[in-house]
């Protein structure tokens, strides 16, 4: 059963692409944020069931935002998105509490597989 998702990425292109994938699969994209600071604020406002979080972003990075969100809501379900070469950042994010990760470039099935599994557990 699809749910409500917050998309965080500094690239408009990536936000649009993710939004399309989620909307077409019946998800409700409650908000989009372009940096970590916005992401924390939007999470507080919308309390989505899922967050997709880019790791490298200006102003406030994804890992810091992830930690802030988890402080607010320890059960928050955050999936990080990152490029192939940023393995250590992904490992960092998982250690910090991210539920899963998506490696860019991605295909829509991979995104939906991760998203659906994360909100159903």
């Amino acid at each position: 059963m699809p749910g409500r998702v917050l998309i965080v990425d500094d690239a408009l292109f990536m936000r649009n692409m993710l939004a399309d994938i989620f909307t077409q699969a019946g998800w409700d994209v409650v908000a989009e944020a372009e940096n970590g600071e916005q992401a924390v604020a939007m999470y507080r406002q919308h309390r989505p069931q899922l967050v997709t979080m880019d790791i490298v972003m200006p102003v406030m990075g994804g890992i810091e935002a992830l930690k802030k969100i988890l402080q607010m809501e320890s059960e928050a379900k955050v999936v990080v998105c990152s490029a192939l070469g940023q393995k250590h950042l992904i490992l960092d994010a998982i250690t910090s509490g991210a539920r899963d990760f998506i490696v860019k470039p991605f295909q829509s099935e991979q995104v939906l597989e991760v998203a659906e599994r994360v909100i159903s557990t």
Partner: peptide, 17 residues
Amino acid sequence: VPVPAPRLLVLLKRMGD
């Protein structure tokens, strides 16, 4: 699988559930 380490880490944490 392009980056096995994070995947294994997620799986290890999942095992904890």
